[in-house]
Simulated assay, not measured.
Amino acid sequence: MLPFFRKKGNGKPKMEGNETTVSSEELLNETSDTEESGQNVDTDLSIHPEWTISKEDQYAFQFLNMECPPLKPNQISLSGISLQEEKDGKYQVTAFIRNSLNKTIKLHETTLVLLDGNDKVLGRKTMDLSQAGEIPGKSSRPWNFTFTEADLFTNDLPAEGWKLAFQLKPSSRKHSLSLENSWEQSLAEKDKAKLQEMVENLTPPKPGEVNFMGLKAIRKENGDLHVTMLVRNGSNKNITLEQIPLQVEDASGQTVAKGGFTLDHFEVKANTSKPWTFIFPQELVSDEEIDLSTWKAYPVQKNAKH
């Protein structure tokens, strides 16, 4: 077997490639809870049980794994170790498969792309990664990925700075309703069903688009204005909204309420729509009579001119 990696002048192993990460939910539809959602995750070395390697390679993998930066929760990454030419026009790419979930994962048939430092695609191949076995939670497993000349678009491969990445398929998942836990627990089943039916019958957002749709606006007796909006995420990635400046216009087209809302970890999953009620206190609502027979609400830039 070829050496897994070349060494620096000081004799220590060297990472020749860079790292790429994907969401575990996008890749495997898997997530795990963490005590702190923003907590970084260090990964421990995990050698495949069928691999027999020398003590020197064991030390080198351990050293390189310690050099890898922490991952965020719910990430899978490929961290490039070495890229070497073998016989018969084959190239062996060695990389860590890193898992930041709390639980074991197993990969299956997946398309991988080889990229240069500018993200130019150098090669592409669909591989059966089930052979990498079960990868424990919070671990890094070194694995060999073989590319042939037929898989590569060039023979001029960089010695360093390259990346191996998962190529995610565009989501074919049907746009669906997503509810915050508080809504899931408090909303009647018939109301959930109505919302789900409405979301499914609406034209979904364009790929990558995030938009807002008004559902209900009610002026309460105390003067507060309750506006329920549907936050629609057409992206194939989860999004988290922290601050939303909203403006409401009534049937006359006049601005009747305007204010900023700070949200606490408000996540809208990929290809879903999530309802939320924004409450404008009386002091942010127009004192004049409001006609809510028709209305619209939308996010505005803080510096926008009207």
Rank of each mutant, 00 (worst) to 15 (best):
P70S: 13
G223M: 07
E189Q: 15
A257I: 03
L168R: 10
K106S: 12
T154F: 09
F266N: 00
E249T: 05
A257Y: 03
S23Q: 10
E85V: 14
T277I: 00
K296V: 04
E289V: 07
I97T: 01
S79I: 01
V231R: 06
A217L: 05
L152G: 13
E209I: 14
P207T: 04
S273Q: 03
G133V: 07
F96Y: 05
A95H: 00
Q243M: 13
R173G: 06
E180L: 13
L292H: 01
C68E: 12
D151M: 04
L157T: 02
Y91E: 01
F96G: 05
G9K: 08
S79F: 12
S178M: 09
E209T: 07
M15I: 11
S176A: 14
Q243E: 14
R232W: 00
Q196D: 15
H108T: 14
A165Y: 11
A297E: 01
K14D: 14
T110F: 08
P3D: 10
S293G: 05
T31A: 02
Q282L: 05
R219G: 01
K220Y: 03
N155A: 12
D224S: 14
A270T: 10
L83W: 04
L115V: 03
E184S: 15
W276L: 03
K163F: 15
I76F: 08
E36G: 10
N18I: 06
T203S: 10
N99V: 10
A270S: 14
G117W: 04
V121D: 02
Q39G: 09
L152D: 13
T20W: 08
F61G: 04
F5T: 13
M127R: 07
I290V: 00
M1E: 13
K103Q: 14
L107V: 11
G117P: 00
K106L: 06
G208I: 03
G80T: 08
N211F: 08
K302E: 15
T20Y: 11
D44C: 08
I97Q: 01
L164A: 05
L157K: 05
M229V: 09
Q196P: 05
V231Q: 03
L83P: 00
A132S: 11
S46G: 00
P275M: 02
D291Y: 06
Q58A: 13
C68K: 03
H108C: 06
F4I: 09
D119Y: 07
E30M: 12
K305T: 14
P205A: 02
K87R: 12
S46K: 07
K12L: 15
I47E: 09
I53G: 13
T154G: 08
Q185V: 12
L115A: 02
K55P: 05
N236M: 04
A159W: 03
S23R: 06
E50N: 14
R6L: 06
S82F: 09
K138D: 01
K169F: 00
I76R: 10
L83A: 06
N118K: 10
I53Y: 10
T104Y: 01
N40E: 12
L164R: 04
H175A: 07
S79Y: 12
L177W: 04
A132D: 09
N233R: 11
W162E: 05
G17R: 07
T126K: 14
P170V: 11
K192Y: 06
L83M: 15
K103M: 03
Y59C: 01
V93H: 07
F5W: 01
V231N: 04
N222F: 07
P69C: 08
V22G: 00
E197Q: 15
